[in-house]
């Protein structure tokens, strides 16, 4: 049996809601294997982002465990969680989370700057160029300011940043939100290609075209 890239086991997350409690996740479990692309759908406010953040090691569930490549991501140890996250997981946030006063290159190679030992400038530049080509922005100058890009280009830059460490797992929150149909389709194709190349992909989306390309779908109530 092939070990899963990611195993979430009985995740539970509950928020206070007025006088009562609102259950976001109730014993949620999930396996993600290499080359697999899983889509998460559901109405707004059902906890898609919460689930993705937990799977990405950015949030801690109240109950349950998370295993990444066989290593338990203990929520009580933020440092270990950060190490696992940085080593294995690329996260594409819903908002893109780009540094608007920086260039394309500075945004994309941001994760590399925190590696120890840090890659050389030349290596960072080379990897940036390569990942820009992967996301279909090979002609874009890394020196170009991010705030001059279109919405589609910004999403691709954010995706390039999520991919620059060549993560085993890519988690994308609404990757095609606010994109036109053509740009959304191109981005969905990119994600599928990453999965086909061996990366485990989990994405949340309302876009049926994107969800159609997934191997499995999870619908949150």
């Amino acid at each position: 049996m092939i070990a899963p890239l990611l195993h979430a086991d009985r995740l539970t997350q509950v928020y206070p809601d007025g006088d009562g409690l609102r259950v976001i996740l109730d014993g949620f479990s999930l396996y993600l294997h290499r080359g697999e692309m899983i889509g998460v759908s559901g109405p707004s406010g059902t906890g898609k982002t919460t689930l993705l953040r937990i799977l990405a090691g950015l949030s801690a569930p109240q109950e349950g465990t998370l295993n990444v490549l066989g290593e338990r991501a203990h929520v009580g140890d933020p440092r270990a969680l950060a190490r696992i996250r940085n080593a294995h997981i690329g996260y594409l946030a819903q908002t893109g989370d780009l540094l608007n006063d920086e260039s394309v290159g500075a945004n994309i190679d941001l994760p590399l700057r925190f590696l120890r030992p840090a890659p050389s400038r030349a290596e960072r530049k080379g990897r940036t160029q390569r990942v820009l080509a992967v996301v279909g922005l090979g002609g874009l100058s890394p020196e170009r300011p991010v705030d001059t890009l279109s919405g589609g280009q910004r999403r691709r830059v954010a995706l390039a940043r999520a991919l620059i460490r060549e993560p085993d797992i890519l988690i994308a929150d609404e990757p095609t939100a606010s994109l036109d149909a053509e740009a959304a389709a191109a981005l969905a194709t990119l994600l599928r290609a990453r999965a086909d190349a061996g990366t485990g992909v989990i994405l949340a989306s309302h876009d049926l075209d994107v969800l159609d390309r997934c191997d499995r779908l999870i619908r949150l109530p």
Binding site: L58, P78, A82, R85, N86, Y91, A93, D97, L98, L99, L110, P111, F114, L115, R161
Partner: peptide, 13 residues
């Protein structure tokens, strides 16, 4: 805003 982004990208708190 910057710290939040950098933290998500691997910066140590």
């Amino acid at each position: 805003a910057r710290c939040r982004i950098e933290f998500r990208q691997g910066a140590r708190a």
